[in-house]
Design a binder for these strands. Structure first.
Lengths: 214, 214
DNA sequence: ACGCTATATCGTACATGTACGGAAAAGATT
DNA sequence: AATCTTTTCCGTACATGTACGATATAGCGT
């Protein structure tokens, strides 16, 4: 069955878009993060500057595409990481997440620290996070802990709490590299261990929904 | 004793600077956060755009000045808040901090979520945070809890952990307003209660210093 | 009072993101 | 084939932050 014309067009568009992402990636590697400008990117692929906007809504959209690539790699790395004990498996998520954030502060910033005005590409925000491979693996591993009786309560609530702690830890380390946190790894480990051991003693209720009359 | 010439000059400079901050404040109130531009600000006080740079290193510096004003108000509000129980006093810090962050996301972002390349005005980063009135009141109240036997361990370490949790919670709520956290207040309270009750069961060691051979 | 030096102010210029509308190309319809 | 419609691409223009260096102003020593 031949591709419909529309499908072919979309495919071509996707190809051009990813060509742009590749070029952006190279640009960043060659000239650093602030070396990525629309004009340079356009010149790199032989387009006029404004043509880039046929494939990306704005510059943020480009940064998002770059960052999502990076985060996909992270998700894969986590999934490939072996761990027998379910709690250990959770610790791996936290540790790798932290290592990634500290090692890729720009990408971390783009995804987790910049204002989200609109969900890129029509995806809803709920999807963006629920469907996020990272959140998915986190929830999965929390579920495994619950199933194994190591944790108790609503997996999504637990995962969200872990996320909040992990994110707080990493974003502080990124934003205030000179604040005396002591050793970064040690601080991450401390926060992670603290939270997991505390969670182990609680039965975590689901996140409350906003009452309808608010 | 008359002011030395130098002192007078500095005073005048400080006055002009705060005049600029006032004008910036008004501009933001009238036109919103993105309505604050160097050109508009300069016009407002009758200067040429470039003259603003005599008083601020860059635009970030202006945003910082605005945000610091706001945070000072927060610190005062917290200190004025009565609380007999030391743990309750700590909860007040967390609650007010959260309310402020959610109510003033731009200022929160400026202070806690933007890259710190240089400490503004020659202050070191350690000072910037240690000397930060907010961190000071937080540490004070943690110390009160330790003195009262409600918490145990190194106050600065405990305060830093609380900060990480609080910041993670608030910055997620700010960055992902559409993620299903449920009720924002409830989520903040949950994280706060969780952390405090967990901390109550531990003896928190000081933050580790980076070993010299690293 | 007169020149010297430092400081405050600003004019100009540039890189950047991007809004707007036009041109050109491709596809659909007749 | 001819015309119409849609999509793609881009030329121009503008607002913005800010680098650079010029000019004017003020304080100083002589």
């Amino acid at each position: 069955m031949p591709l419909s014309v529309q499908t072919r067009r979309e495919k071509q568009k996707a190809e051009l878009r990813s060509e742009l992402v590749d070029a952006a990636h190279k640009l960043v590697q060659e000239e650093g993060y602030e070396g990525l400008t629309i004009r340079k990117l356009a010149k790199r692929v032989g387009y006029a500057p404004m043509s880039v906007y046929s494939y990306f809504a704005d510059k943020q959209d480009i940064l998002f595409a770059l960052a999502e690539d990076a985060f996909e790699t992270l998700a894969k790395r986590i999934e490939d990481h072996p761990a027998d004990d379910p709690i250990e498996a959770l610790q791996v998520v936290m540790t790798e997440y932290a290592a990634f954030g500290l090692g890729n502060p720009n990408e971390y910033r783009t995804i987790f620290m910049t204002e989200k005005v609109k969900p890129p590409e029509g995806r809803t925000f709920a999807e963006m996070q629920e469907g996020n491979p990272l959140m998915k693996v986190l929830i999965n591993r929390v579920e495994a802990c619950v199933a194994a009786g190591k944790l108790k309560g609503d997996p999504r609530a637990i995962a969200t709490m872990l996320w909040a702690v992990g994110h707080g830890t990493i974003s502080l380390l990124i934003t205030f590299p000179f604040y005396p946190f002591g050793d970064q790894q040690a601080f991450v480990k401390r926060m992670c261990d603290f939270t997991l051991s505390a969670l182990a003693t609680k039965d975590v209720p689901p996140l409350t929904e906003t009452p309808a009359n608010c």
